[in-house]
């Protein structure tokens, strides 16, 4: 049963996508153009801004809704 809020799901999804595509979160942060602390905050505290989720969805070439659903539903 999923108890995670959509914001926290987005953060979790980001962690998964980074792990699948980059050797480290630092490498992703550097390439994406964000401070590593910002990326950590997104992952650990969730992402509550529509604009950020839109941008990350474009970066990883996935649908925006994929960020807000559990992996097996995406």
């Amino acid at each position: 049963m999923n108890n995670l809020s959509p914001q926290m799901l987005a953060g979790k999804r980001l962690r998964e996508l980074i792990a699948e595509n980059y050797p480290s979160q630092e490498e992703f942060a550097d390439e994406y153009g964000a401070d590593i602390r910002t990326v950590s905050r997104y992952i650990n505290n969730g992402i509550n801004k529509l604009d950020i989720i839109q941008e990350l969805a474009d970066w990883f070439c996935i649908d925006f809704m994929d960020f807000l659903q559990e992996r097996d539903k995406a």
Binding site: Y32, G33, A34, D35, R37, T38, R41, L50, D51, Q54, E55
Partner: peptide, 19 residues
């Protein structure tokens, strides 16, 4: 504003941004 926030410097002036 986006770069400012991405750099972890918080939010500028209460603006909301969306595309």
């Amino acid at each position: 504003i986006e770069a400012y926030e991405r750099a972890g410097m918080g939010s500028l002036s209460g603006w909301t941004m969306v595309r």
